[in-house]
Simulated assay, not measured.
Amino acid sequence: MKTALVLGGTRFFGKELVRSLLAKGVNVTIATRGNSGNPFGDKVNQLIADRYDIDSLKSACEGLHFDVVYDQIGYSSEDINIAYEALKDKVGKYVFTSTMAVYEYGNNLNEEEFNPYTYPLKEVNSKDVSYGEGKKLAETALFAKTGLPAVAVRIPIVQGEEDYTERLLFHVKKIKSEEEIGMPNLEARLNFISAREAGEFLAWIGSQAFTGPVNACANGDIQLTELVNLIESKTGKSPILTNSITDENRSPYGIKETWTMDNTKATDLGYEFSNLKDWLPSLIDYYNNII
Results as ranks from 00 to 15, higher is better:
residue 18 V to C: 02
residue 106 G to N: 03
residue 63 G to Q: 08
residue 37 G to L: 11
residue 51 R to Y: 04
residue 153 V to I: 14
residue 253 Y to P: 02
residue 276 L to R: 00
residue 68 V to E: 01
residue 233 S to N: 15
residue 186 L to T: 15
residue 174 K to C: 07
residue 230 L to T: 11
residue 138 A to R: 00
residue 29 T to V: 12
residue 184 P to M: 14
residue 13 F to Y: 15
residue 124 V to L: 06
residue 147 G to H: 10
residue 142 L to V: 07
residue 230 L to N: 09
residue 11 R to T: 15
residue 75 Y to W: 13
residue 98 S to Q: 11
residue 210 F to S: 04
residue 189 R to S: 11
residue 70 Y to T: 03
residue 136 K to D: 13
residue 189 R to C: 12
residue 61 C to A: 15
residue 215 N to S: 09
residue 77 S to G: 13
residue 152 A to W: 00
residue 145 K to S: 05
residue 72 Q to R: 05
residue 90 K to R: 14
residue 257 E to P: 06
residue 90 K to S: 03
residue 252 P to G: 11
residue 4 A to W: 06
residue 67 D to K: 11
residue 56 S to F: 04
residue 163 D to H: 03
residue 177 S to I: 12
residue 11 R to M: 07
residue 51 R to G: 02
residue 288 N to K: 04
residue 167 R to M: 14
residue 46 Q to V: 14
residue 40 F to S: 04
residue 238 S to V: 15
residue 228 V to G: 01
residue 173 K to D: 13
residue 201 F to I: 00
residue 80 I to Y: 03
residue 5 L to H: 06
residue 246 T to H: 11
residue 173 K to G: 00
residue 271 Y to H: 03
residue 28 V to M: 04
residue 222 I to Q: 10
residue 55 D to W: 08
residue 202 L to K: 03
residue 235 T to Y: 01
residue 249 N to S: 13
residue 27 N to V: 14
residue 289 N to Y: 08
residue 75 Y to C: 04
